[in-house]
Write a protein that binds this DNA or RNA. Structure first.
Lengths: 300, 300
DNA sequence: TTTATGTATCAAATAATAAAAAACATCGTG
DNA sequence: CACGATGTTTTTTATTATTTGATACATAAA
């Protein structure tokens, strides 16, 4: 009927672990000290000590805290929820949207999503509030939320925004110092691209992963929290769409490999204008591909 | 003990308004029709009709709905909360952070903020969740939230991000069609800058508003939801800092006017490279100013 | 057969509440 | 008597429960 005591349970086990490393009969640290060890407040520590006393693990009176015996496995409390996958909610949500092609304008029910993703409602609300900053969802006048993307406009704006960010990344990369780890990664990427080009007839499916790695490498020179936040969303959306769009996949991937190689060539030659031009061409191709994959979806 | 019935109250008054325009004795539209008129669900409409019947405004039985008399001012229900200013929470929150120079790492208490801004707690939680996407706040391990910005790193990254966006805007502007409204706005802005330059000795305070207008004009050619979302935050932060940093204000503003004029000159000449260069210079100045204003704050 | 109303179900907003954190007061000991 | 520890109280947070509102379904009138 109120908040869960997960925090207490976890702390209790952590304190038991700590006691396990202590010889029986030793005096325990102060409440404040234990609080620091377990990373929780004194309130929780006192509850832990209380329970340890009940269990006969501890003789406790005032500031006399004597550990009576080493804690056993049975002494631990088990955590109710086996660590809900509330972590990668973003990944799972976008996956759901793209995989099932949830149309723009769909009403999103927090209750339903909460059940589907096995995440408490209030966490979902916070998550949606965050997404609304990216223009992916918005509040409905009659309450609740609705999905805004994935319209054609959204795809265009996303592509444009991506271009802006990535062209900047390329510009910076061209001026990165020689000892920057990105150069080693680029060399490896070149080799990987050449290998895939040779085996394109059979392995063209492998390109998607390579593409993601390539773009991640380009952006690795930009250490900017705003850019980073967007890249997560951008890369997810682009890659899911490319994965699902099977039209001309082999030709498309072969062409993209050439474009990537052109970018790598220009970068390694430290020819910034050429790199910009090559990256611009590649980003325009990507945009076209994204838009056409949307069109196919709409027709289906 | 649960959600408020504000929605009902507002709808009831709206329905009364609608009835006021109707001659007494007339039959009222269907429930669904009324629902559409009031922008609300049938559930609420039925509650409204029920109340109107009790008040003697309406004879209601099945689908016979006869308006008995014209509604009076006394018939209206008054809304409890006199329209809380929950709208521009973003503005007010950033204002508070910058005005009181809330240091990075400060714990933000939802309860306290809720009282201070007179906004329900859950709205604040959603708001903070949104801000966390911008890296301005984050969750604390022991629960609750903390303010991350305004560190030096944050300022640098924000400035860089702003530069990327705005240089792109300038590039697009240089290629905007002649009939785009931005050209008229730029002409006006040039005149305003010249006027202010002539009166700089006395009116230098007026620059802040002009600066905001200028940057808004530049970005007006980019219609992109992602850019737009950021511009709100960016412009707020920059302008508050400039407003509070009084060191060398006159000299600073005079220099900025020249930089603005250079940009306008290049744009009107459709000289894209020159515009880029001028904008780059100006953005670098802005960044320096922002950073030095932080330093002054830190010393104080 | 269509359109309106009656009814039931489900979701959203928000107050209420247990758990946890933080603040405060008091005590014990070197 | 000062410092650090514990005892106690106050606040705050996470989470549930409850009421209002939205929506889907069933039924009846035109």
């Amino acid at each position: 009927m109120a908040r869960s005591d997960t925090r207490f349970r976890e702390a209790y086990n952590r304190i038991l672990d700590y006691c396990g490393a202590l010889p029986p009969g030793s005096v325990m640290p102060s409440e404040t000290g234990l609080a620091e060890i377990a990373g929780v407040s004194r309130t929780i520590i006192r509850r832990c000590l209380g329970r340890m006393e009940e269990t006969g693990l501890l003789a406790w009176s005032g500031r006399e805290k004597l550990l009576l015996r080493a804690p056993l496995a049975e002494d631990r409390i088990d955590l109710l929820r086996p660590e809900g996958g509330a972590e990668d909610l973003e990944q799972r949500f976008l996956d759901w949207v793209l995989r099932f092609d949830v149309p723009a304008g769909t009403a999103l029910s927090v209750a339903e999503l909460s059940r589907h993703f096995d995440v408490p409602q209030h966490e979902l609300k916070e998550f949606l509030a965050g997404l609304s900053r990216f223009g992916l969802v918005s509040r409905r006048p009659q309450g609740g939320w609705m999905l805004l993307g994935f319209t054609r406009d959204f795809a265009i704006e996303l592509s444009d925004f991506r271009s802006v960010l990535e062209l900047d990344a390329v510009a910076r990369l061209a001026e990165a110092p020689v000892d920057h780890p990105v150069w080693a990664e680029l060399a490896e990427l070149r080799a990987a691209h050449l290998r895939l080009r040779a085996a394109i007839e059979t392995d063209f499916h492998a390109f998607s992963k390579l593409d993601e790695r390539f773009h991640q490498a380009l952006n690795s020179v930009v250490t900017n929290r705003f850019t980073a936040e967007f890249q997560k969303v951008i890369s997810l959306i682009f890659h899911y769409h490319f994965m699902w769009d099977k039209t001309e996949e082999k030709t498309r991937n072969a062409a993209a490999i050439e474009e990537h190689l052109e970018i790598i060539d220009a970068l390694e030659a430290r020819d910034a204008p050429a790199a910009q031009a090559a990256a611009g061409r590649h980003l325009r191709t990507s945009k076209t591909t994204l838009l056409s994959s949307l069109r196919h979806h709409e027709l289906a």
